[in-house]
Design a protein around this nucleic acid. Structure first.
Lengths: 117, 117
DNA sequence: TTATTATATAGTAATAAAGTCAAATATCAA
DNA sequence: TTGATATTTGACTTTATTACTATATAATAA
């Protein structure tokens, strides 16, 4: 995508629905707070599943499932050592995305605050 | 968020779950291909609902509903003129987000292609 | 081998979201 | 006022997603 904008990105006249579905599915992966928490935790370095369970307070099965989703999406990578599985960030772009969202949200909330009071 | 990375963003040690939910909800808005299609359509300028119905091929009620979600999220703005409602982009950050996702996806798919064949 | 630990997966119930149809609202014209 | 057009909203159905529980797998130790 999408247009000439900040960062000099490319204009595309047509955008296939398949492409849009692909992009949407990436956003969907990031659309869960628990997965964001996992990514946030991993932002400071590799963690074992056990460590992530402790850090998030979520159940073991839940953490494992979310990690599977992040892995499938290519956002994290997995390393097995003895009994443990260690996860780490595989795609730094997630931080860029969150940064952009944070900026936009701050502005949006500020606007709303001004309007609503 | 989130860490020192490309673009010089801020490290935050702690990230409240509320903040993560807020970020996730923004991603959720973008996690539907039809909404992305609407945004893509609007990227070249203001459109009436009727025009968006034609452009997307979705039903009128469906388009209206998605537009409502985008509006609520502050991504688009609405202008009423006579019988028509005109929508336009209110938050250019969505294009930045899609640009980042596109870049990341291209890389991810390329990697997968190399591995799987 | 059996037991133990770490992780993943299957089945399931509750929740949420998308899409459809019909009805409601709003604006304008006759 | 009545009728037509543009858009929104509500009720409903279908489909997805989450999180839970229990079970399965995998690696190691005894």
């Amino acid at each position: 995508m999408w247009r000439i904008g900040t960062g000099g990105c490319i204009v595309k006249k047509e955008m296939s629905f398949e492409a849009l579905e692909l992009i949407a599915s990436r956003f969907k992966v990031l659309a869960e707070p628990m997965r964001l928490k996992l990514l946030h935790e991993l932002s400071s370095g590799e963690r074992s599943v056990t460590e992530l369970i402790e850090a998030t307070g979520a159940s073991q099965a839940n953490v494992s499932k979310h990690l599977g989703i992040l892995l499938e999406a290519g956002l994290v990578k997995r390393r097995k050592d003895k009994l443990n599985a260690y996860y780490s960030i595989a795609d730094e772009s997630v931080f860029k995305l969150c940064e952009v969202v944070c900026g936009s949200l701050a502005e949006h909330l500020e606007t709303k605050r001004k309007l609503v009071g």
